[in-house]
Simulated scan of single mutants.
Amino acid sequence: MRRHFSRYIVIGLMTFSGCSVLNPNVTEPVFLSNENAAKSWVNGLRRQLALTMNQVVVSTELVSDNYYNNRTLSSKVFDIPQIDYFDLDVNNLQVQVQRLREMSEYGLSTVLKGDPTATAADSTEVYFSNAFAHLLSGELFVGLPGSNLGPVLTPTQHLERAILLLDKALALSTNENDRNAFTLLKARAYYQLGDAVNASKYATAVMSKTTLLRQAKFDGLNNVPNDMQTYLYSSTNNEFAPLPRLDFLDPKYYHTGLAATDQKPVTITKAEEAYLIQAEVQLSAGQLDASRVTMKQLLDVVSARGSVSIDDKRKRGMEVTGRTIR
């Protein structure tokens, strides 16, 4: 099975030592002794997940042939594509991924153990965050540390660690949608590893879950907006210009009311991915007819998703209809 690198490879060697305490009245012992420390930490992880996805989505969309950076401070050379390990945007990307990993590791080693009110759901969320950080590390980097001040791990090592952590999350979770999402993320990890058998096994396990959806949520009122939405729609300056292959789908993120209160989520995994993985497994095995059937089934899943009409006159001088990203 061909290994897929559509999310693009960059290199990073920076380690991250965790979150600094800026408020002298909120020290580590004080935080850990507070009631519901684990739930507070989980909320912080969700915030960091949103910040991480902001950097991931912006960077990978620029490297792809989806968007051109018209007038933002984001990378001016990713469009080429030119990706250097010393590039500030590469550094920003690895920092956000490493922050998610470090925060989740601290949650596992310290916060959960010190909070008697911590629940299995809290632990599930922390294990997922750690697994997803390793999954991104394996997909986006040719080398990245897997622990604070630790050795640089290969993509294979990161992906294998992600699978083990997803298994831990699965063992704790009782939420059906979460369990299905974790299973599909395992399929994605095996797909990246080139393991066609396991990629197919875990993809087909959730293909019947056609409404499966896992997303990162944003909060414009508390300074965690969706950056791509800002570049594509909130701004009036076409800061990210869609390239021809994507123009008919643009904007992928938009708002219909106040931008601050209508921040669209970014999808981490969804049912459609299972069909794409299975179709590629079938193609790699020469099963063309089976792959056609799978892709036709995928179209049914896509058609069942909701859609909305938006007025995009201020950008294009006409009204267009766009499908929501879910």
Rank of each mutant, 00 (worst) to 15 (best):
K168Q: 15
V95F: 10
Y106V: 06
Q287F: 04
Q96R: 15
G257E: 10
T110I: 05
E273Y: 01
N130W: 04
G146C: 05
T204H: 05
Y127K: 01
L49M: 15
I277F: 02
S109V: 02
A181T: 05
T210I: 14
P225A: 12
Y190S: 04
A259M: 04
S75G: 11
A259F: 14
V58M: 12
F31W: 07
D312T: 14
A118V: 07
V90F: 05
N180C: 07
L298Y: 08
V281S: 00
G12R: 02
R214P: 00
Q282E: 08
Q55L: 01
K76S: 08
L193C: 08
S234F: 04
L193I: 07
S109T: 09
L185K: 02
Q96L: 00
Q278I: 00
A205D: 14
A205K: 09
K315A: 09
R326N: 12
P265Y: 07
T236L: 10
S75N: 09
G146E: 03
Q96Y: 09
T294F: 07
L184A: 11
V90H: 00
R314E: 10
H134Y: 11
L299Y: 09
F78Q: 01
Y190V: 06
L213Q: 13
Q278T: 14
P151A: 12
F132C: 04
A171T: 09
C19F: 11
K113W: 01
M14D: 15
G306M: 06
S303K: 15
G286I: 00
Y233G: 01
E160N: 13
N180S: 15
A189W: 00
Y106S: 06
T154S: 15
N25L: 11
M228E: 06
A121Y: 03
T236Q: 12
A169D: 07
S147P: 01
A133F: 08
R161F: 03
N34Y: 04
R161E: 09
D227S: 11
H134T: 05
L144Q: 04
E105Q: 13
V293R: 11
R71K: 14
T60R: 14
N223Q: 15
S235F: 06
I11G: 10
Q192A: 11
S104C: 08
A121I: 04
G114V: 01
